[in-house]
């Protein structure tokens, strides 16, 4: 059992302080320098960053390997799709987040009893059940979903600023929670839940809170997705879609706050590059996944983290029983 290293908040804070303004400037300048298609791709990267970062509360922090997060992403997306013409953008995004949080709390209440692989499969089954529900229900459009979603009077550029602003703000909130006493307790939960229980920590409540938090993040990301894509289909809830944030977390490094974000960028760009190559797209994606697990269990951030100094020291690998 490897000891939990003290949090190196200062190091990350420095990076954040340095990167924060850069990100803000980038978000502001990008619409003037890239094409509409590239901007859309970058919006999807941002949405995936939020999705993966919030999902990492389940993987990198508490040990609750959910394979059904796409269902909550989809819940947020469908909330926006159903109400876009009645509720203003900002309020609707909050509503999407809240509704997904409620859904995930309900599902957590029944599934947190299980652990590990069983938990993974229960969440997979529940997520798939929600997908089938959306697919079969006529008032949410069945297989064709809900098209024609608009973000009030926002232009394409306006949607970019909306996405950029919301993702930056939400990731900042995640950062604060991640490093809060709550977040550190979740970390301890991952390391040794039994010991925590003996210490009097209400483990069940923390797990429930973590799952709800991750669901809220997924719902917000899904809401943004609905505005950027203009259409929501049941495909957003399919179980393989739950695999992408997990892949991103692994590729980036689940032991680091910024791991999922790095992974989201890497994986989205890789998928984009693989488009249009039948068979090869799957082969390469599979090889990358296996390669990361075997040769870079701490992810890209863990692999190259030492280049950025102390940042790498706080990594906690995925290796079991270490």
């Amino acid at each position: 059992m490897r000891a939990v290293l003290p949090e190196r908040r200062a190091g990350e804070a420095t990076v954040l302080g340095f990167a924060g303004p850069l990100i803000a400037i980038a978000v502001a300048v990008i619409p003037s320098v890239v094409s509409g298609a590239t901007m859309f791709l970058m919006e999807q990267v941002l949405i995936q960053i939020l999705f993966a970062t919030s999902t990492n509360f389940l993987f990198g922090r508490s040990h609750m390997p959910s394979f059904g997060q796409a269902a909550f992403f989809g819940t947020g997306a469908y909330t926006v799709a159903l109400l876009y013409s009645h509720v203003p953008v900002a309020a609707l995004l909050l509503l999407a987040m809240a509704f997904s949080a409620v859904c995930s709390a309900l599902i957590a209440a029944v599934s947190v009893r299980t652990r590990g692989i069983i938990f993974a499969n229960v969440t997979l089954a529940l997520g798939q059940g929600m997908y089938l529900l959306a697919f079969k229900t006529s008032w949410v459009g069945g297989e064709n979903g809900i098209p024609g979603i608009t973000a009030g009077s926002l232009s394409t550029r306006g949607i970019w600023y909306l996405t950029g602003g919301v993702v930056v703000a939400a990731v900042a909130v995640c950062w604060v929670i991640y490093h809060s006493p709550f977040g550190v307790t979740l970390q301890a939960l991952r390391e040794d839940a039994v010991r925590l229980e003996f210490l009097g920590v209400r483990v069940g409540r923390f797990r429930l809170a973590a799952f709800t938090l991750a669901g809220a993040g997924a719902g917000l990301a899904g809401g943004l997705f609905a505005y950027t894509a203009g259409i929501v289909t049941p495909g957003t809830m399919y179980w393989t879609q739950s695999g992408y944030p997990i892949l991103m977390i692994l590729v980036g490094g689940m032991g680091f706050f910024w791991g999922p974000a790095v992974g989201a960028i890497g994986v989205t760009l890789l998928l984009n590059q693989l488009s249009g190559h039948p068979g090869w797209d799957l082969v390469i994606l599979g090889l990358v996944l296996i390669g990361v697990l075997l040769f870079a269990p701490r992810g890209l951030v863990g692999l190259f983290g030492s280049w950025f100094g102390r940042l790498s020291q706080k990594g906690l690998g995925v290796t079991a029983g270490s």
Partner: peptide
């Protein structure tokens, strides 16, 4: 030697490779 979840994902990677081939 990986954790249960990491190994589950590793085998998922292999599934993708076999399906792609």
């Amino acid at each position: 030697r990986l954790s249960d979840i990491a190994s589950l994902l590793g085998t998922f990677g292999l599934l993708l490779v076999i399906e792609g081939v």
